Simulated assay, not measured.
Amino acid sequence: MFIYLNMANELTTEKLEKAAYILKTVAHPLRLKVIELLGNTEKMSVGELCDVLACEQSLVSHHLNNMRLKGLLKAEKQGVQVFYSLKERELLGLLACIEKCNCNM
């Protein structure tokens, strides 16, 4: 099934490039789960994320730092802990699209 965009809703090259940048950044199951988790709460510490994701701190920190450097997350240091939050809550729309997708995978 093809969906045709009406010319008034045409995606600009700039929007498509930004979308590709974001999609490349989140193209990992752990990163998508981080977005989901941070969408359900204001902020979470690295330790809290590690516990929920059942992953090593070094792996989670690597993904969080990458997402922060690319502008998707905010990091706030409080003492020895770092708390992460979504910089743009619109990222949650990606998860909604994924949930609705009926791809035969």
Rank of each mutant, 00 (worst) to 15 (best):
Y4P: 03
L5S: 11
L5G: 02
M7W: 01
A8N: 09
A8R: 00
N9I: 06
E10G: 07
E10P: 01
T12P: 03
T13S: 15
K15L: 11
L16A: 09
L16V: 09
E17P: 00
E17A: 08
K18L: 15
A20N: 12
A20K: 13
L23R: 03
K24I: 09
V26S: 04
V26F: 05
A27N: 15
A27F: 09
P29K: 00
P29L: 04
L30W: 09
L30H: 07
K33F: 07
I35D: 00
I35V: 15
I35F: 03
L37N: 00
T41Y: 03
T41N: 09
T41M: 07
K43P: 01
M44Y: 01
M44E: 09
M44V: 01
S45C: 09
G47S: 10
E48S: 14
L49T: 04
C50N: 02
D51T: 15
L53S: 10
L53Q: 06
C55F: 10
C55W: 07
E56Y: 08
Q57N: 10
Q57H: 09
S58Q: 09
L59E: 13
L59N: 14
S61Q: 12
H63D: 10
L64T: 01
N65W: 00
N65E: 05
N65S: 15
N66D: 14
M67T: 05
M67Y: 00
R68M: 09
L69A: 11
K70D: 04
K70R: 14
K70G: 00
G71N: 07
G71E: 01
G71T: 07
L73E: 00
K74E: 12
A75C: 12
A75R: 04
E76L: 06
Q78Y: 12
V80A: 13
Q81W: 05
V82D: 06
F83M: 05
Y84L: 07
Y84I: 02
S85Y: 09
L86Q: 07
L86K: 06
K87Y: 12
K87N: 15
E88A: 11
R89Q: 08
R89Y: 03
E90T: 13
L91E: 13
L94T: 05
L94V: 13
A96Q: 13
C97A: 15
C97S: 12
I98P: 05
I98H: 04
I98R: 02
K100E: 05
K100T: 06
C101Y: 12
C101L: 10
N102C: 13
C103F: 12
C103I: 15
C103S: 12
N104L: 11
M105P: 01
M105A: 05
M105C: 06
